[in-house]
């Protein structure tokens, strides 16, 4: 499905906005010009939508915590480009995956390098008045696995322009999404909404993630926690497992589920 048809589908399904991913699809790459981004915005606005935030699909290959300086510099550049794109698209937040612990790149090293680089990026973000939301990709990153540690990490960065883009599906069996919401409160820039099969574990191409209400998240508790911290920002549905048939039906189903979550009819 092309970009234009995609935004029209989202509108028909009842969404208010769209999260754009730099590096994911041909129409939004590092080489995409400002004029081309403005043209995308026109299509989004013509469909009656807004841009919720700008994410990227590049951090997994080019991360600010990489040992290789070429990858690290590329990561810095694509995050800068996200910030520029966010300004053009009229949104005030971006999503980054900051810090990847691997077999070869140890935790302490990743921690220090990520804090240092985000401090530099915070200066860029402050000038653009765009918030950097650091996503909690806990299991995939092997990094910042507890909400307290994530909080200490943000304390060390020490900038109001760097917060957490909280994904309530990513916590798996290492904690409870509602507790993350409570602990981070005003530092939450955006929330990704998906469900998780906590006891499945990744096996081959089987995803642990699933549609809202199909997994193990406690949606009553998540909703209450969002109310408690007065979260009134975007809820962004993210689906890793796709319908094998009638793919557009998943977009409609997720929208209905989201509407019921927001309305408290669960």
């Amino acid at each position: 499905m092309g970009f234009s048809d995609g935004v029209k589908l989202l509108k028909r399904a009842g969404y208010d906005g769209i999260e754009l991913w730099l590096g994911e699809r041909p129409w939004f790459q590092m080489k995409t010009t400002d004029a081309e981004i403005r043209a995308m915005l026109r299509q989004i606005e013509d469909a009656g939508l807004e841009v919720s935030n700008v994410a990227n699909a590049l951090d997994w290959k080019e991360n600010i915590s990489a040992r290789d300086p070429a990858k690290r510099e590329a990561a810095f550049r694509h995050i800068e480009r996200q910030i520029e794109a966010a300004q053009i698209l009229g949104t005030d937040a971006i999503l980054v995956v900051a810090g990847l612990v691997t077999e070869d790149t140890p935790y302490n090293e990743v921690y220090k390098r990520t804090v240092g680089t985000l401090q530099r990026l915070a200066e860029v973000a402050a000038k653009a008045r765009v918030k950097i939301g650091v996503e909690n990709c806990n299991a995939e990153q092997r990094f910042l696995l507890s909400p307290r540690e994530f909080s200490t990490f943000l304390d060390e960065i020490n900038s109001p322009w760097v917060g957490i883009h909280l994904d309530v599906g990513n916590i798996h069996d290492t904690g409870f999404a509602e507790q993350w919401i409570e602990l981070h409160g005003p530092r939450i820039t955006r929330i990704h909404v998906k469900d998780v099969l906590k006891h499945r574990g990744r096996c081959g191409d089987q995803s642990v993630y699933t549609n809202i209400f199909l997994g193990d998240n406690n949606w009553h508790a998540i909703r209450e926690a969002m109310r408690k911290v007065n979260y009134d920002g975007w809820l962004i549905v993210e689906m890793e497992s796709r319908y094998r048939y009638a793919a557009d039906q998943q977009v409609y189903d997720a929208s209905v589920a989201l509407t019921r979550l927001i309305a408290g009819k669960i």
Partner: peptide, 8 residues
Amino acid sequence: GPGLFAEE
């Protein structure tokens, strides 16, 4: 040096 920075 990177290990020093990471306080290994």
